[in-house]
Design a binder for these strands. Structure first.
Lengths: 231, 231
DNA sequence: CGATATATCAATCCAAAGATGTAAGACAAA
DNA sequence: TTTGTCTTACATCTTTGGATTGATATATCG
């Protein structure tokens, strides 16, 4: 089956013309890839991508004119099943993290052996996501650090002092309910809700419902709302 | 230098006694590791960890009594530089994601060759984070999917209708300020703030400040507050 | 058993928040 | 210049929210 697979079509985007030429030659030597375009401009590259619908894009992400990361984002938005491999001169954890977050299917250093680039392309062409082991380690260090910081602040958590009922009330607060709404949903009177809410304020050491909601969300109160990580 | 390195101390936690014994034998055969403990109970394991301070823990994460993930979390909280490698029978993306998020330094399938387990231990002992390539791919698929969904919902965003000043006001709202606080910080009168806030309510189609804040936080309003991903 | 914690409800009272309408000055685009 | 948007500001009125005090019923725990 493998020998009948059609060649994968590759688009190259790299503002360094020399490097662009080098990579192009390297890939053209590989019988399993066709270079359908090569440009030093991210914007032109995006247009070429729309036009030629390559299978894979090798994208330099350290470009002055337009940020390669932004270009990745725009290409992903097209939702055309174009797989982007980020090329970079730096093994900066933050860069790796952001590239992968934006949907890059691989991240390869320019200093790496050409065999590794081809291997990455093979893996990505077959639908996998490829990160060199060393970069995977870096990625995870960054990834875990961002959660360790969270965990640290979650240590002493005023939320633990809330009773079960108070948690229910707080949960409804974090959904934007007012007293009447909460009372209706819990089948209790509005004044009872007021009592609970006031007790919550005392325990969380806040002055109003907005602050209570913010405290809850910033301190691991799930509230069935999925959240995010800043880019 | 390598031959002078002291043996790494390993603690095994696996509720399956047979598997526990097998792994113990396997590791004892390796000259570079000492098994300092082996237990079928997560709780006992945590206590052993405190007592013997192993370098590495191999932790089964599919245990009925106590969740292995929770055990990882507790061990990480100890902050004793104990490196946990998750052992699991399943290559479930969500399990991998949560284990790594909680600080596991590796994730190895029980079905994998023993050589791979030893390799993972070698890598982790040397300070790296190790995930088999296949699992790395799974992890990233999960990782990227969680962001794609975000991007999708952020498409049509009522926040874009806000003026610059309104965004400033909303930002202060998401920090728990009341009218007086916002007026003071922006050097404008309280009535002006009221005007802005009311306009914000109209544009975001909400009824009160809490709902406005929730809308902002759930729709990519950065608000200089780092956020999280639910476990 | 008595002490304590929780959940329920009510009556006040004051402050804060929200709705609505109006309007003036700045500024940019048509 | 005119038009429109944005920012500022005020007055008025209604509703909601928050603080406080006190009361009752029901568990749970020692």
């Amino acid at each position: 089956m493998r020998e009948f697979k059609r060649k994968s079509r590759v688009l190259l985007i790299d503002d360094n013309a020399d490097h662009l030429r080098g990579v192009k030659e390297l890939i053209t030597l590989e019988s399993s890839y066709d270079v359908v375009g090569a440009t030093t401009s991210a914007n032109i590259g995006i247009n070429l991508a729309k036009k030629y619908r390559p299978d894979i894009i090798l994208m330099d992400i350290n470009m002055p004119e337009k940020d390669g990361l932004q270009a990745i984002q725009e290409i992903e938005k097209l939702d055309m099943d174009i797989r982007v491999i980020a090329l970079s001169g730096y093994d900066d954890a933050d860069l790796i993290f952001r590239a992968m977050k934006l949907g890059a299917k691989g991240y390869v250093l320019k200093t790496m052996a050409s065999a590794q680039l081809i291997y990455a392309m093979d893996e990505v062409a077959s639908g996998k996501i490829y990160l060199p082991t060393a970069l995977t380690s870096r990625f995870f260090e960054y990834f875990q650090r961002s959660f360790r910081e969270e965990a640290a602040t979650t240590e002493e958590n005023l939320l633990t002092y809330l009773t079960a009922r108070e948690e229910e009330v707080l949960d409804l607060l974090t959904q934007g309910n007012n007293y009447k709404g909460i009372a209706g949903k819990l089948f209790i009177s509005e004044t009872t809700v007021k009592t609970h809410v006031n007790n919550i304020f005392q325990k969380l050491q806040v002055n109003d419902r907005t602050q209570a909601v913010l405290y809850a969300l910033n301190n691991g109160f799930a509230g069935r709302r999925r959240s995010k990580m800043a880019v």
